[in-house]
Write a protein that binds this DNA or RNA. Sequence first.
DNA 1: ATAATAAAGGATAGTTTTGTCCTTAATTAT
DNA 2: ATAATTAAGGACAAAACTATCCTTTATTAT
Lengths: 163, 163
Amino acid sequence: MSRQGVATQTTTAMFSKSTEYALRAVIFIGQKGSEGKKLGIPEIAAAIGSPPQFTAKILQLLTKNSQVVSSVRGPNGGFFLTEAAKNLPVKAILASTGEENVLTKCVLGLYQCSEVNPCPMHNDYKSIRRQMIQLFETKTIRELAEETDNGKVLINDMGKQVY
Amino acid sequence: MSRQGVATQTTTAMFSKSTEYALRAVIFIGQKGSEGKKLGIPEIAAAIGSPPQFTAKILQLLTKNSQVVSSVRGPNGGFFLTEAAKNLPVKAILASTGEENVLTKCVLGLYQCSEVNPCPMHNDYKSIRRQMIQLFETKTIRELAEETDNGKVLINDMGKQVY
DNA sequence: ATAATAAAGGATAGTTTTGTCCTTAATTAT
DNA sequence: ATAATTAAGGACAAAACTATCCTTTATTAT
């Protein structure tokens, strides 16, 4: 399906695909993996419903850019989260894909928008923004992983349950 | 600046550029224009800080896809909002660019995520989503345009005030 | 009627994001 | 030491989004 000229988005989401995969991958690794049990790319990609090679790239960001995820190469290698990393806020994941400011940016995309120089949406959106930042800064990876672990929380793209 | 392979977004926003321009354009037209005073593409683009030709495409979406904006061709032609259109909710603008479901979609991008099948973020995000939908469904274009008209609200990308 | 004006719309180019392929490097097991 | 395994990373391909160019169509003024 090729569209020309104009746009009308196909899929639309708050975050980019990269960030969505990053969030899902980290939550999954936090739930199923540990320093003792590392997870490989095929396993992670299958679980969260993402293309393996692309997932590998995103895991690179998560280990390199930020240090949310740890990795070791070679046999029995793979990805895992340290106990310290599990205590990081969800926002740390956004940072690895450079998308943290989705939370703070002006709805109309205006750089100058601020409390003293508000866009028409500013005052109405302000409280929502505050809550969004609060959520991503206080909720930890550990909390999300444990929630998933309850056995009744969705993590992959196919709608299958993760027990 | 060409990046290869991996990602780390450059600009990041809740909405696409198209939608940002659409929102700004409609607010501006609602404020400065009327059935009697139609606005041309150069004027609109300059005011909201967007590329004129691209803005033209987006205005097409706004007149064709949805019927948020009205237009007439020829001399003294241009774009304007009917009084009825001014009463439309801001969400109607999102609809024209096919981005309305940014408001409702799962934060992790999971299609199956729902109240009975929640993703790990679902319960925490739920209330924020509700407020976001509420805002875009109840706030009208007229209200935003009038707020802009107060003479102290930002509308363009250069940080200049619109009086 | 004709010319001028302004949006509509088709085609195409540029950029970013998403996704894949394949080689390299590190680690482990034998 | 050697081979096997797994992530790291470079190069490239495909798709989507952003942006521009140019022709056509509708409308108005002369």
